[in-house]
Amino acid sequence: MKTTTTWTGKMGFIGQNPSGHEVAMDAAEEIGGLNKGSRPTELLLQAVAGCTAIDIVSILNKMRIVPERFDTEVEAERAEEHPRKFTKIHIHYILEGDVPEKKLARAIRLSKDEYCSVSHSLSAEITASYSLNGKQGTMEV
Rank of each mutant, 00 (worst) to 15 (best):
H90Y: 10
F70W: 09
L104T: 04
T127Y: 09
E77A: 13
L34S: 13
I89A: 09
F13S: 03
S129W: 04
R109A: 14
E30H: 08
L104A: 12
E75C: 13
N35P: 10
K135Y: 00
C116I: 05
E75M: 11
S121N: 05
F86K: 06
N61R: 04
E68N: 11
L110N: 00
T4R: 03
Y130K: 01
V141P: 15
S131N: 09
F86R: 01
L122Q: 11
A128L: 08
S129I: 08
C116W: 10
T72S: 03
T127P: 04
F70Y: 00
K10M: 14
L34T: 13
V23K: 00
E81A: 03
L104D: 08
V141T: 15
V48L: 07
G12V: 00
T4W: 03
R84F: 08
E140N: 14
V141H: 15
S129D: 13
V99C: 01
P100T: 06
I54H: 05
G20L: 00
D55Q: 04
R106Y: 10
I31Q: 05
E68R: 12
D55V: 02
I65E: 03
T6H: 11
R64H: 14
E75A: 14
G9I: 00
T52S: 15
F13C: 09
P83K: 02
P100V: 12
R64I: 13
Y93T: 02
Y115T: 07
R106M: 08
W7F: 03
M25S: 12
V23E: 03
G134K: 05
M25R: 06
D71V: 02
K36H: 07
R109G: 08
N17R: 11
S119Y: 04
H82C: 01
S58Y: 10
Q136V: 04
T138P: 10
A28E: 10
N17G: 12
E77H: 13
S131I: 06
I89V: 06
G137R: 13
G97T: 03
Y115P: 07
T138C: 14
H92M: 15
I31V: 07
A47C: 10
P83R: 07
T127D: 01
G9Q: 04
R109C: 11
W7V: 02
N61V: 01
S131V: 09
G33L: 05
P40D: 04
T6P: 05
T127R: 06
R78I: 11
P100H: 08
T52M: 13
L43Q: 08
G50Q: 00
V99L: 08
Y115G: 08
P40A: 05
R78C: 02
V141G: 15
R69G: 09
T138N: 15
G134D: 02
I94S: 05
K36L: 13
V23Y: 06
V57Q: 09
P18H: 03
D26N: 00
V118L: 00
N133C: 07
E140Q: 12
I126K: 05
Y115W: 02
Q46N: 15
